[in-house]
Nucleic acid binder design. Structure first.
Lengths: 253, 253
DNA sequence: TCAAAAGTGTTTCCTATACACCCATGT
DNA sequence: ACATGGGTGTATAGGAAACACTTTTGA
């Protein structure tokens, strides 16, 4: 029932679209150039006004599609991030924001002058200033990411996809400051493989083949989402472009 | 800016009012008897429709005051709980619920035929059935409680108040299933005192006096909220009504 | 003085971290 | 071959759980 008898509040659904950059092994946030006032032309988180009878994930999808050119199929997962109700957050007037974090499939990100990727760090450092209270929202996303990554299986799986390398995990942990780069350029991350095994969540892909022969061939997994094979291709590239020993590839049990 | 040009969604703010029962050492939820349809006469979580320009905590306060007779001063803290947007959650039509968990000062709870206290367990077990999707919301609250209790200092402090006994902590942990009662009726919670010390958050109140002389006199703490002294009185009662050795009282550093 | 409840001393186990070393690749 | 990045073996420290025992109360 849509109610016009009473005054109703404006509710926006704002999304933090996160995606793993497979070249840099960093977590990035997608922002779209605004085509309306206020902040016309600036990059901001995708967000839309919630309409009646619309579910939150639907609104989030609509925001991602219209503001950051992400196709619905490339949205891997959507999680709750919280609510933001500072009355000054929008110059147009009080609008309560329901924030979501959406994991976007890595290969699916459109590079365009309308859509930009920024690293989580850039926002955390304040190097990148976003309009509205979007810096606050991204920071909340970063916090949630730190809490869930490698502690919630479903969350981690949605971020890493069906297959992933140790290298990517290392990159993300380094980004989060959870792994320190030693004085002598040696990574102090020697236990990562052990930790991954310790979770009991994952299996090594093709242990025999991945050494000696070629790092290009990986086992085909039961793809939960058909993005997997494409990611796999990207992975192969990313993996083979190193100097030292190539890192392991993992699948989910 | 109140907007009547577009159709706007209905947003409700629903609150899970939790409070520590100092007699049973259990966490309880306050529910109020509904005075409107639907579910007239049934006990439900307090909730109101969000009005424009109203902040979420204000709406939560309004809900607590009107539906469960809690005075604003007795609301110790309000935390985010999440959003619930199942379209069937309200028979009147789609309403998105923004849920909050509110910690209510123990002494402040009004016992009335309009307001009832139920234990968290009763809801979790399904012994207590609430209207709408309130069982789901309470369960989310229980989960959040389990995550934050004894791991977030501010959260824990808001729940336990300025002063508290080991006994209460034990009660809550037992309720959550985090402490098991041994086969021989002996509590397997021998490390509780150690754990509390280990947090570094708290100090023992009046170690010397609390033995030998009388368990009635406690140090006056710098009361963050003036409820403290009243709680203290209640505590004294609760503490002195046991058989064995009285439990310690703690204050926050 | 006995039962009940709370707290302490101490052991044991497990896991996180660290350090030293070995393996697989590109140039 | 050697520098670079990745992984394993093994030692060590710290914290959680367990168990036996002591302390403080009410009846």
């Amino acid at each position: 029932m849509s109610n016009t008898e009473y005054e109703l509040p404006n509710i926006s659904v704002d999304v933090v679209p996160v995606t793993v950059n497979l070249d840099t092994n960093q977590l990035e946030v997608l922002v779209g150039r605004r085509i309306f006032e206020p902040y016309l032309g600036e990059y901001a988180l995708p967000g839309v006004l919630l309409t009646p009878h619309e579910r939150l994930v639907e609104a989030a999808t609509r925001a991602l599609e219209t503001k950051t050119l992400v196709k619905a199929d490339d949205i891997v997962a959507v999680y709750d991030l919280g609510t933001f109700d500072n009355p000054d957050r929008d110059p147009r007037g009080a609008t309560v924001s329901i924030a979501k974090i959406a994991v976007i499939a890595p290969h699916a990100v459109v590079e365009d002058e309308r859509v930009k990727r920024i690293t989580l760090d850039a926002v955390a450092n304040g190097d990148e200033q976003l309009p509205f209270d979007h810096n606050t929202i991204v920071q909340a996303a970063a916090t949630l990411f730190g809490e869930k990554f490698l502690s919630s299986k479903t969350f981690t799986k949605s971020v890493l996809g069906e297959q992933f390398t140790t290298k990517i995990v290392r990159g993300l942990l380094t980004q989060m400051g959870r792994i320190t780069t030693d004085s002598d350029h040696t990574y102090d991350a020697s236990n990562l493989t052990r930790q991954l095994k310790g979770t009991g969540w994952v299996d090594v892909v093709d242990e025999a083949d991945s050494y000696g022969t070629s790092s290009a061939v990986y086992a085909t997994t039961s793809a939960a989402y058909d993005i997997a094979s494409q990611i796999s291709a990207a992975l192969t590239t990313a993996t083979s472009t190193g100097r030292g020993r190539p890192s392991r590839t993992w699948t989910w049990k």
